[in-house]
Design a protein around this nucleic acid. Structure first.
Length: 291
DNA sequence: AAAAGATCCAACCGCGTATGG
DNA sequence: ACCATACGCGGTTGGATCTTT
């Protein structure tokens, strides 16, 4: 029954992704697109299974992913769609293309389930549900129409098929941007954008977020004076990545590097008590020439 | 300041489905 | 038709971080 895990072979790395792994994966997708995942480990040298690579891409690195708090509207959409569709997270996510199914699932499990349990009954009553169902059915019909149209186009030998323009979708308040190959090129920017989002009030929680926080701090960026630093000024420019080296909790050591250059900078990031501010310690920040 | 408990979410796991030989 | 393997999805977990004591 069932297949053995795809990652049983020895030497496969598990756990949180490092920035350099992210960059390798993004580079691969930029070049080949998000397909043929089984080729990713061998092509990139990543010591990860294909499944892990796909998950990392779809849940984290893919362009257009929105991070941060869910808006009231998003919350309502999730509640309504969950009521309508059940735990079909990927389907629900298809209506909120800037959110991943994993995010939605997590948000449901950690926030909405409790919230709904607390309020007892679900706010949007039967009439709201019926309305949603009507919208859902209309959407489905539109999808079928679009698919049929596309099939006809594909089966005919016309050159330059006309652009398919589906009718306005009832649930299209959150438009679904088609992911074109050109968008993969935005992945690096996507990482940078995530950096910006995560630098906002909420302090980073994960190592990868810490990385971004750190890079921002090193670059002298950040909002409201967060990321204050002193000593030798270093900018993000030129640094291609950073990795956590040692330490845990409130105090960590990081290393950042540049491509094709042996210069590495070491830094310690501390979280200044309750002020939610990160800073690099000039005293422990120095150049290091490795190799 | 430290310990303990609670919370959150990235990543893993197992299974069903799709696909190709 | 059968088998092997890749893909995709939903449930679950580990551990980092936050909050409370």
């Amino acid at each position: 029954m069932g297949r053995p895990p795809c990652c049983e072979r020895s030497g496969v790395k598990k756990g949180p992704w490092s920035p350099e792994e992210d960059l390798l994966l993004v580079s691969y997708v930029q070049e080949h697109g998000p397909e043929n995942w089984r080729a990713v480990p061998s092509s990139t040298g990543l010591m990860r299974c294909s499944k892990s690579c796909r998950l990392r891409w779809t849940n984290y690195l893919r362009p257009g992913i929105k991070r941060g708090n869910f808006s009231d509207q998003e919350e309502k959409i999730i509640i309504d769609l969950q009521k309508l569709l059940g735990n079909k997270w990927s389907t629900i996510a298809s209506y909120m293309t800037d959110r991943t199914d994993n995010d939605i699932k997590n948000y449901w499990n950690t926030h909405l389930k409790k919230k709904l349990a607390k309020t007892g009954t679900r706010e949007s009553g039967a009439s709201g549900s019926a309305e949603m169902k009507g919208q859902w059915e209309r959407q489905l019909q539109t999808d079928i129409h679009t698919a049929r149209h596309a099939l006809q186009e594909a089966l005919s030998f016309d050159t330059a098929p006309p652009a398919i323009k589906p009718e306005p979708l009832p649930l299209a308040q959150l438009p679904a941007p088609a992911i074109s190959p050109a968008m993969y090129a935005c992945s690096i920017e996507n990482i940078a954008r995530l950096l910006e989002v995560w630098m906002r009030p909420r302090a980073s929680r994960k190592a990868s977020a810490d990385w971004m926080t750190f890079v921002s701090a090193v670059s002298g960026g950040g909002e409201g004076g967060s990321g204050s630093h002193s000593g030798t000024a270093r900018t993000l420019e030129g640094f291609t990545g950073t990795t956590k080296v040692e330490g845990r909790g409130r105090r960590r050591h990081y290393r950042c590097w540049r491509a094709g250059c042996s210069t590495t900078a070491w830094g310690t990031v501390t979280r200044a008590s309750s002020a939610c501010r990160w800073r690099t310690r000039a005293s422990s920040f120095r150049n290091w020439t490795g190799g």
